[in-house]
């Protein structure tokens, strides 16, 4: 009889022991699952129910919510800053248009009147710098809009070959003036990619412009290569080339290299081009050797 009682007590104790162990494991798992769920929601930006109880999880929820709210506040601040910038850009863009237009206009008018060689040189200088100024402001405005997400690109399936042809045609006269040729090397059949026509053309123009600037003899060849998932536009020039240690710098903002001090340009064209290409989901690369010309490649997603 005694034996039976002891046995039952033993069994009950064992069951209890095992039971409470299992129970604690399950509850720990539940807690951790809940915490992970909270953090997942926070990462996704979802809201989550705050529960208020003595549970530790409840305290965690509250803390997390506080933290997020604080970040949320800063997100709001960021938005406000952005809006201010938007306004500034709009103002600059709008307001400088007229004065610059007038500058150019009057300079041209001046040119048409009789001037001696010295004076003509001065007027040409004024015209050149006004051009630069306009280009600079334009580029900066575009850049700001792009960078701040105010303007967006609309990539669509477009013919790469046709853009290249267009750009080549457009830059032809400028190149001609320097005595340089612009060739195109297009593959048979059409090559298309996912791009924003206007902006891509703009980027390409900047690149070709850059190539023209830094080439004295020879010319520029634009070619298109077709890959399985990308289309590549290369702009090869026979210019002065770029030293290896300078290559990373050329895409920099306002970066001008020693070798190009003498040339025109404000140092922002390539930067803008690269940003445009990046935003289209592509990239740019350059290969060059000092004295042997450069090759710029623009890769665009198909």
């Amino acid at each position: 009889m005694m034996n039976d009682i002891v046995l039952y007590i033993g069994i009950a104790a064992a069951v209890l022991g095992v039971g409470s162990f299992l129970w604690s494991r399950i509850s720990t798992k539940k807690t951790l699952d809940r915490v992970e769920e909270l953090i997942d929601k926070a990462i996704d930006g979802d809201t989550f129910q705050e529960s208020f109880s003595e549970e530790r999880t409840s305290r965690l929820e509250t803390k997390l919510t506080e933290y997020l709210r604080a970040s949320g506040v800063s997100a709001l601040n960021v938005k406000n800053e952005r809006d201010k910038i938007k306004t500034l850009i709009a103002d600059i863009s709008h307001q400088t248009k007229t004065p610059i237009a007038n500058l150019v206009l009057h300079s041209e008018l001046l040119k048409e009147s009789d001037l001696n060689p010295e004076q003509e040189e001065c007027v040409d200088a004024v015209l050149r710098e006004s051009d630069k100024l306009r280009f600079l402001i334009d580029a900066l405005v575009k850049l700001s809009r792009l960078e701040n997400g105010i303007l967006s690109l609309n990539p669509a399936k477009e013919s790469v070959s046709s853009i290249v042809t267009e750009v080549a045609a457009e830059m032809n006269s400028k190149a001609d003036k320097k005595g340089l040729y612009i060739k195109t090397d297009l593959p048979d059949g059409d090559v298309s990619a996912s791009l924003d026509r206007k902006w891509t053309a703009e980027a390409l123009i900047n690149i070709v412009d850059n190539a023209v600037k830094y080439t004295q003899t020879g010319g520029i060849t634009l070619s298109v290569k077709d890959y399985e998932m990308f289309a590549c536009i290369t702009v090869k020039d026979t210019g002065i080339g770029i030293a290896e240690e300078d290559i990373p710098k050329i895409f920099g903002r306002f970066n001008r290299l020693e070798s190009s001090r003498n040339e025109e340009g404000v140092g922002i064209g390539l930067y803008l081009a690269r940003e445009i290409v990046k935003l289209e989901g592509g990239y740019m690369k350059v290969s060059s050797k000092l004295g042997e010309g450069s090759e710029f490649a623009v890769f665009l997603k198909k």
Partner: peptide, 17 residues
């Protein structure tokens, strides 16, 4: 080289993206 170019390009743009 052709396939390689694609692969590298994808690497570059995905890294960006």
């Amino acid at each position: 080289s052709k396939t390689g170019q694609d692969v590298l390009s994808l690497l570059k743009v995905s890294a960006e993206k």
